[in-house]
Simulated scan of single mutants.
Amino acid sequence: MRIAIFASGNGTNFEVLAKAFQSHEFGENAKLELLFCDHPNAPVIKRAEKYGVYTATFTLKSCGNKEEYEKKILQILKSRKIDLVVLAGYMRVISPVILNNFDGKIINLHPAYLPEFTGLHAIERAFQDHVENGRTQTGVTIHYIDEGLDTGPIIKQEHVPIYKDDDVDTLEARIHQTEHKLYPEVLKKILEEENEKSNN
């Protein structure tokens, strides 16, 4: 299985996964082939360099429109013979241009317990609900993507508590901790299942 990771920013989840690939935690047949980043100056690119991961980066603006942007990404995915796309803090909605070519082959990490707090700023919105309404937990969800916004089939979820003395930063740190544990676990299971299928 040849994997691409899409990320837009800092890339802490990318680094956790890259380390796991490097130490063969996902098996000998799983290869991290590509990082795609839509922000050429994002810190995640430096992380990819550290792990020797091939990187492609360009902006939507440089392509003129979303369709051309995604066609260009699709070309790269095909040229690298990618089997599975892993979204790790990629801040754009994937359109049918890519989706139709990778149906059931794109997984996403969302920092909330879906269907709560879909879309952007999920951590801040959960924290705001804690302040205003006494919410005591949020969560992390890993799911396959479809054409909706964070509506695809759920693979795994875990609740994350919100404590009385939390601020947004402490809550975000706890959510990242959960993500860093959950994402490798889920990816390992998916890759093992795919490996079994290909061996049968």
Results as ranks from 00 to 15, higher is better:
101 N>I: 13
147 E>S: 06
102 F>E: 00
119 G>V: 12
155 I>F: 12
107 I>G: 04
90 Y>T: 11
152 G>V: 10
90 Y>A: 04
89 G>E: 00
90 Y>C: 02
144 Y>L: 09
125 R>G: 01
116 E>N: 01
110 H>W: 10
117 F>G: 00
87 L>A: 10
152 G>I: 06
149 L>P: 13
104 G>V: 01
115 P>Y: 08
127 F>L: 03
87 L>V: 09
105 K>T: 08
154 I>L: 03
143 H>W: 10
156 K>E: 09
91 M>G: 10
127 F>I: 12
154 I>C: 04
100 N>Q: 03
147 E>P: 04
105 K>W: 08
105 K>E: 02
155 I>H: 13
89 G>Y: 03
106 I>M: 03
149 L>F: 06
133 N>S: 15
108 N>D: 05
107 I>S: 04
128 Q>V: 12
124 E>N: 01
143 H>K: 13
123 I>G: 00
130 H>C: 13
148 G>N: 12
157 Q>G: 03
157 Q>W: 14
92 R>N: 06
136 T>V: 14
136 T>H: 06
90 Y>G: 01
110 H>K: 11
139 G>W: 06
152 G>L: 11
148 G>D: 09
146 D>E: 10
117 F>A: 00
111 P>Q: 08
130 H>I: 14
130 H>W: 09
144 Y>K: 04
87 L>Q: 02
121 H>Q: 06
119 G>H: 15
145 I>H: 02
113 Y>H: 09
98 I>F: 00
151 T>V: 01
134 G>F: 11
98 I>E: 00
117 F>Q: 00
95 S>I: 10
106 I>A: 08
137 Q>G: 07
138 T>W: 14
102 F>N: 05
103 D>I: 13
128 Q>N: 14
96 P>Y: 09
131 V>G: 12
136 T>A: 13
139 G>R: 10
145 I>G: 02
110 H>D: 02
135 R>A: 15
127 F>N: 06
130 H>M: 08
156 K>S: 07
144 Y>C: 05
129 D>V: 15
88 A>K: 15
106 I>D: 00
143 H>S: 09
152 G>P: 09
96 P>E: 04
128 Q>S: 14
112 A>D: 10
105 K>A: 08
146 D>I: 11
147 E>Y: 09
104 G>T: 15
92 R>M: 02
88 A>D: 01
148 G>K: 08
155 I>S: 01
95 S>G: 03
110 H>S: 03
156 K>C: 11
88 A>W: 04
108 N>F: 12
142 I>N: 07
142 I>T: 15
105 K>R: 15
102 F>Q: 05
96 P>G: 06
90 Y>I: 07
96 P>F: 09
153 P>N: 12
148 G>W: 13
126 A>Y: 08
156 K>Q: 11
152 G>F: 10
102 F>G: 13
127 F>E: 01
120 L>Y: 05
133 N>I: 12
113 Y>F: 12
132 E>K: 10
91 M>E: 05
137 Q>F: 13
114 L>Y: 13
105 K>Y: 12
118 T>Y: 03
105 K>L: 15
114 L>R: 14
155 I>T: 06
